[in-house]
């Protein structure tokens, strides 16, 4: 009886600590403090989002909307690269397919916003399945090169399949569901947070563990029963879905799309976002998107030395914060919480 109880106690203790420590080091932190911190930061974040349109000018609000759109696309890369360990330099192709799907459905067939968004996501999933079968046998640099190839093929299709895409002229007059920039910003943030919540809770299940196992030792993962190819394809499909949704949000936001927005440069921008933001954390997608959308226009006062400083900053992050800006922020948070936990524990002991 008591042995059984001991076992349950041990299980409870181990389970909580292991779950909490899986993706960041939370050792020595009072769970109550991290709960308080989390609640406060959520409230601050949501309050900031709600107030932002009233606080900033039109340009900055436009940038904030763009950041939350790229946040969605970059989250897909976080699952694909950060969790499953596959490199893709073709994410913009998936964004483009989602954008064109939404644009065509909205302008030619009169589909509503609520329908085009999920359909655009599914178009990204379908592209992931089509592309995944031949390319997911590749790993590392080979897959990266293949993904560039996929990006180029999709780009060529966009330019030359005039009957559908209208070639270089693109598709115009895509009408937003809401007129006000403020409302559209709220909509993109809401969709971004909904996807983030789904991906975050997926990662807390053993599926996140299966992805980690795959990323770090594929042979051992297969030998321990994880269906390797199928899980890679799933990661690819999730990534495609995020990109497709982001593409649709982008199309509505701009009102006009052409192949220009979905080239290799855009793929590399999304890749840089997740690396600068932090591959190992879903929040890395948010931090990366914010940094890379807001920094360039706001650094323009630097004049001609802008690219130099920008490039140098990117280099510094890669060298000194391999887990990206989000990783560094989380480390700082955990450091502070650990200090506070330690100091209050001393007070309680006597």
């Amino acid at each position: 009886m008591s042995k059984e109880a001991d076992k349950t106690d041990l299980l409870q203790e181990v389970r909580e600590e292991v779950r909490g420590n899986r993706y960041e080091d939370t050792g020595g932190i009072n769970p109550r403090y991290s709960m308080v911190f989390r609640t406060v930061s959520y409230v601050v974040f949501l309050g900031g989002v709600l107030l932002l349109p009233s606080l900033v000018n039109g340009l900055q609000l436009r940038l904030a909307t763009l950041a939350s759109i790229w946040f969605v696309a970059t989250m897909g890369l976080q699952v694909l690269m950060g969790q499953a360990g596959l490199v893709s330099i073709g994410q913009a192709a998936f964004v483009g397919v989602g954008a064109y799907t939404a644009a065509i459905l909205a302008t030619k067939h009169g589909f509503s916003f609520l329908l085009t968004i999920p359909i655009a996501g599914i178009s990204g999933v379908i592209l992931a399945i089509i592309v995944g079968f031949p390319t997911l046998k590749l790993r590392g640099h080979y897959l990266a090169i293949a993904s560039i190839g996929v990006g180029q093929i999709v780009l060529v299709l966009m330019v030359n399949w005039r009957a559908v895409t209208n070639g270089m002229d693109g598709i115009t007059s895509i009408r937003r569901p809401v007129e006000s920039n403020r409302m559209y910003f709220y909509i993109t943030v809401a969709i971004g947070l909904a996807i983030a919540f789904a991906l975050y809770s997926l990662r807390q299940t053993p599926v996140g563990l299966a992805f980690t196992a795959l990323r770090t030792d594929e042979t051992a993962a297969g030998a321990m029963g994880i269906p390797v190819a199928w899980h890679y394809l799933i990661a690819f499909m999730i990534s495609g879905f995020c990109a497709g949704v982001a593409g649709a949000l982008f199309a509505y936001n701009e009102g006009f799309i052409s192949p220009y927005g979905f080239d290799l440069g855009q793929s590399i921008l999304l890749l840089t976002m997740i690396i600068i933001g932090g591959l190992r954390h879903i929040s890395g997608a948010l931090v990366g998107a914010i940094l890379l959308v807001f920094l360039p226009p706001n650094l323009e006062f630097l004049g001609s030395s802008y690219m130099l400083i920008y490039g140098f900053a990117v280099l510094l992050v890669i060298l000194f914060a391999p887990d990206g800006a989000a990783g560094a922020l989380l480390k700082l948070r955990n450091f502070l919480l650990r200090k506070i936990s330690a100091s209050t524990r001393k007070v309680e002991t006597p």
């Binding site: 563990l209 980690t212 321990m224």
Partner: peptide, 17 residues
């Protein structure tokens, strides 16, 4: 072939997936 960065618990748990 274990996953050195993962806890023992997670290493074994992968086998139960």
């Amino acid at each position: 072939r274990i996953w050195p960065e993962l806890s023992l618990f997670d290493n074994v748990m992968i086998g139960a997936y």
